[in-house]
Write a protein that binds this DNA or RNA. Structure first.
Lengths: 207, 207
DNA sequence: ACCGACGTGAAACTTTCGAATGATGCCTCT
DNA sequence: AGAGGCATCATTCGAAAGTTTCACGTCGGT
């Protein structure tokens, strides 16, 4: 018997996953969570697999929750389940310790198979995802640091360097410094181009 | 008895909505559709309400499907159900003849109430959505001219004023002039903010 | 025929951004 | 202990971007 925890902020999705797994005799849903925090709190030892959404309406996001859960010993495996298959999301999830990365539009059989695989301790990456990861391995090292990503997000919201500095309690010089690094890593030379590039590769999420 | 058709390309969401409505004695799901085309085909007279997702993986999108369904006489009411609440999406759906606009993260009771309201012929806009529509009504006349939209698109791609001028066979001064008008209409004061604002209201589609 | 609104274009001027360089302190990994 | 990555801050300068103000058509209306 495989015990599941479903973490998703959409009640409809929780109900759907619950209904799906209810038809399988060896799977049982033992809990639900509507936020990242809740997911961490409910991932006690009696849970075998956590189905984790990456996007939550507010608070802790799925990747962080995954990290928190996995850093404990005897932690359940985490299967990430999301709408998007952007590089940044996938990489973040895998790096956070996810055993698998599934898309919400996947056929039910695939979900169920992935749950069973994860319960056996296997990694269950969708084929498209695996290919993407491989491509990422060969890509130049251009991962933004978390601080840089934070700055870039504010830039994408249209804030000026001064605004960003105030918001993050930094000097304007520091913001510029971060931007230089961002430009270098993204191989661009203006803030709008950086935003365009980041959107393309899924490093930032539109409002 | 209210007969429902569920149109969504995510099996999980279909299952979730099905499970949700199964608990209500006066609601019955009489069909499912995984694409816009399928939704149109299955919206025969025996259906009272269509739950319509706006985003489909490919082919006909929800707004077009809604239009097709509603243009027939004796057509079922269409409740649009989506992840995003951008102005453009909402406006498009309502204009296509949707009786309601709901977000997927809405609580189940709200969904069910909306279905019943739609079955009675009432309009069931989520409060947040209604407010947004109203705001749109009162908003200053901020429609961009086609030339302005053209410029803004290039800005969103990260091009400099000089690049844009060259591409559109203009002087740099003219590009700036267009930008001034764009800023005024969007009520912002920088190019990146303009792009953010345009993305928010759906005037620009990200790559 | 006149007026005004609007899209378009343009100059001069101010502010912000980005490039280049350098420096400090704090981590982690080796 | 040393190397390297990251975050922080500073100064200087030239290049963009943004502001202000003006001008010229075209079009619709009273």
């Amino acid at each position: 018997m495989i015990r599941l925890l479903i973490a998703d902020d959409h009640p409809v999705v929780r109900a759907g996953l619950g209904a799906l797994f209810a038809t399988e005799p060896d799977l049982i849903v033992v809990g639900e969570a509507a936020s990242g925090e809740e997911a961490v709190a409910r991932s006690y030892a009696g849970v075998d697999i956590v189905l984790m959404d990456l996007q939550f309406g507010g608070g802790m996001q799925g990747a962080d929750a995954t990290r928190r859960i996995r850093e404990r010993s005897g932690a359940p495996h985490v299967l990430v389940l999301t709408n998007y298959d952007t590089d940044a999301d996938i990489l973040g999830a895998v790096e956070a310790g996810a055993a698998g990365y599934l898309l919400k539009d996947a056929p039910p059989e695939e979900l169920i198979a992935a749950v069973r695989a994860a319960a056996r301790g296997e990694s269950a990456l969708a084929p498209t995802v695996a290919g993407r990861l491989e491509a990422r391995q060969n890509a130049p090292d251009d991962a933004l640091s978390s601080r840089e990503a934070e700055v870039l997000t504010l830039v994408a919201d249209g804030m000026s360097n001064r605004d960003i500095a105030r918001q993050l309690f930094l000097s304007e010089a520091t913001v510029k410094s971060h931007l230089v690094h961002i430009f270098t890593k993204l191989q661009v030379s203006s803030r709008t181009a950086a935003v365009a590039s980041a959107r393309e590769r899924g490093a930032i999420r539109s409002a």
